[in-house]
């Protein structure tokens, strides 16, 4: 409850700050919207020339991409700025500020800022999911919708964990510039159907790294119904990767030596 109050205060501060820089908010909202549009346009152009991708129709694929975008928008809205700043703060020594705060350092450092533009575009991503579901004639029940929301949350935890692990590398290599590029490269796989992967690529991106499971499991729930094994895999991966993120972050924190780090 105490942490929720701290987060609420940070969120309020972020919103006030956003309202002070309204032009910036508008530009960044457009940035996210444009990047979402590029993903959807790519799918649209490919389907002008082919009828299916790994057995998935155009709107099934759009639903998958929409789900991936939805999770990514939540990540952008809740955590991106804080985690991105973490890399710079460790390098400059400004990370001391978080160590001095009376609370869990990882929580303080990764939840301090929220980006309302990310939230705004999450509505667009949700609209893409709803539109695709409508075109596919899907009518999920309340339980399916609730489970879909839980799976999106599981996906968000996985994305958060991967990003924290990536940026925590700054404790060892000092300059983690470009690591966030790696995160974006990895999320490209979340826009692909699982059936498109071969044996080797499945081993890496489906079973090894949680890139594919993040979006495929919630999208498959709406398309094909509940699969308990896939759900277990998603929530297990979320718990496992979150544990690894906590471990890596705190191992890295031990190496932090203020401005000289």
């Amino acid at each position: 409850m105490n942490y929720f109050r701290i987060w609420l205060a940070s969120a309020r501060y972020s919103v006030v700050r956003t309202l002070m820089f309204r032009g910036d908010f508008f530009v960044w909202s457009l940035v996210e919207l444009f990047w979402m549009a590029t993903s959807l346009l790519t799918i649209s152009v490919i389907y002008e020339h082919t009828s299916s991708i790994a057995g998935w129709s155009k709107y099934e694929m759009t639903l998958l991409v929409g789900t991936s975008l939805l999770i990514q928008r939540f990540l952008m809205g809740f955590f991106w700025s804080s985690i991105f700043d973490m890399g710079r703060n460790v390098r400059s020594g400004n990370f001391d500020f978080f160590l001095a705060q009376p609370g869990n350092v990882m929580f303080m450092a990764t939840t301090r800022k929220i980006d309302p533009d990310g939230f705004l575009n999450s509505f667009v991503a949700l609209a893409v999911v709803l539109y695709s579901a409508h075109r596919l004639g899907l009518h999920p029940g309340a339980a399916d919708c609730a489970l879909y929301a839980c799976m999106v949350l599981g996906g968000l935890i996985i994305h958060y964990s991967i990003l924290v692990i990536s940026v925590s590398m700054v404790f060892w290599i000092t300059n983690a510039q470009g690591v966030e590029g790696g995160y974006f490269s990895l999320t490209e796989f979340s826009r692909l159907p699982k059936a498109a992967f071969g044996v080797v690529t499945s081993a890496i991106f489906v079973w090894g790294l949680p890139a594919v499971v993040v979006s495929n499991v919630p999208a498959s729930l709406l398309l094909h119904g509940f699969n308990p094994w896939w759900a277990l895999w998603l929530f297990g991966a979320a718990a496992g990767w979150f544990g690894i993120a906590v471990l890596v972050f705190h191992r890295g924190l031990r190496r932090y030596t203020s401005a000289s780090s």
Partner: peptide
């Protein structure tokens, strides 16, 4: 590192387009 990550992008492109070509 950036070059290495580009290989991830190339892998994603390869998987996407090989799946797309199965339908043509």
């Amino acid at each position: 590192v950036r070059g290495l990550f580009s290989l991830f992008h190339l892998s994603a492109v390869f998987i996407l387009w090989s799946a797309a070509y199965q339908g043509v």
